Simulated assay, not measured.
Amino acid sequence: MSTRVWTYLPEYEQEKDDILDAVRTVFESGQLILGKSVHGFEQEFAAYHGMAHCVGVDNGTNALVLGLRALGVGPGDEVITVANTAAPTVVAIQAIGAVPVFVDMTASDYLMDVEQVGAAITPRTSCLLPVHLYGQCVPMAALRTLAHRHGLTILEDCAQAHGATHHGERAGAMGTAAAFSFYPTKVLGGYGDGGATLTDNGDVAHRLRRLRYYGMDEGRYYVVETPGYNSRLDEVQAEILRRKLTRLPTYLEGRRRVAERYAEGLRDTDLILPSVSPGNQHVYYVYVVRHPRRDMIMAALRERGIDLNVSYPWPVHLMSGFAHLGYRPGSLPVTEAASAEIFSLPMYPALPPSTQDTVIAAIRDVLGVR
């Protein structure tokens, strides 16, 4: 029996009654598009982050696309980000005609190397797009200083960092705007696609709401002010998410408990375990470890029915779809070296201790640690 569990099913078994009640509530409400559930979730998600505005959209990629457009980023503008991220981060930049500019990561935590950002800023730079990767935050103080000095906006990519904090500030509350994904595997996930963009700026929020509804102002339909998208958060997903939001602290506690068990069981091996950077509270969206014999270890575990994942095996700057950007092997050496060695252990709040112990024991055996 495989120990790989990347589905919603274990959580669903625990929360089935509430999830099905959420669906029933929406279906019986008579409002299926931008109704009470979406507006309620938007208010509650904004309040959780101490932000003034939340605009729910159809997925995390469009949360970035609309966020960039609402911040005034357009064709030819440069957006500084990282290549060790899910491709949608970069796809969103290109979708609006902007140009991704990559900086390397730091080897200790796999986060944006903020010290490289200053040198990457040019007169065409419009926005900084830090990715709060794997469940912890980029050090934002230095990034905000750079943004202020150069008159730039910051769009936080928070798809992997629901509930994470940096020196007491939540991921999503430290930039001009922030984009979230509610894909089912996320720390706060729905039962389909979904996303949201947060901001404290009322004008940005107004543009976001217009952009998600074809370019029309809500309440003034059939008149397009600025061409936009059909990019609305679904009522069913919103009702599920607003209920799950109340359980987010429990999810975070469960993920940290799993992380602690891995750390205890593997600390005497030569695996490089996750490092928590100063000021961060990690939420362990994924539990990423590193070893120079990664492929051998994964193959040996697969033979034992333990099928693991790599986030991410191919840095974005070396993908053929982004070859036109001109990056070559060696452009981002820290990112490239890590991509050949990192892999992720099973991580979700309800991971049974027995399953986790099976994974730990198998890794120890493969590494020859008794």
Rank of each mutant, 00 (worst) to 15 (best):
R4P: 00
V5S: 09
E15C: 12
K16V: 08
I19E: 02
I19R: 08
D21T: 12
V26N: 10
L32P: 00
I33S: 06
S37R: 02
S37K: 02
Q43V: 09
Q43G: 04
E44M: 12
A46S: 08
Y48E: 01
M51S: 14
H53P: 05
L64Q: 01
A70N: 14
G72F: 15
G74C: 14
P75R: 15
P75C: 11
D77P: 11
D77Q: 15
A83I: 03
A87H: 00
V91N: 04
V91W: 03
Q94W: 02
A98T: 08
V114M: 09
A120M: 08
P123Q: 14
T125R: 12
C127A: 13
A142M: 09
L143P: 00
T145P: 00
A147P: 01
A147D: 08
H150R: 13
T153W: 05
I154W: 06
C158Q: 01
A159G: 13
Q160H: 06
E169T: 12
G172T: 04
A179G: 02
F182Q: 09
K186F: 04
G190Y: 00
Y191H: 08
Y191P: 00
G192W: 00
G192Q: 01
D203V: 15
V204D: 01
R207V: 07
L211V: 09
R212M: 11
R220V: 09
R220I: 10
Y221M: 15
T226F: 15
G228M: 13
L233G: 00
D234M: 05
D234G: 03
E235T: 01
Q237D: 01
Q237G: 06
A238Y: 00
I240V: 13
K244H: 13
L245W: 10
T246M: 15
R257Y: 11
A259D: 03
Q281R: 15
Y287V: 03
P292K: 11
D307M: 13
P315G: 03
Y327V: 02
E336G: 07
A337P: 04
A340M: 09
A340N: 07
I342W: 08
P346D: 06
T358G: 13
L367T: 05
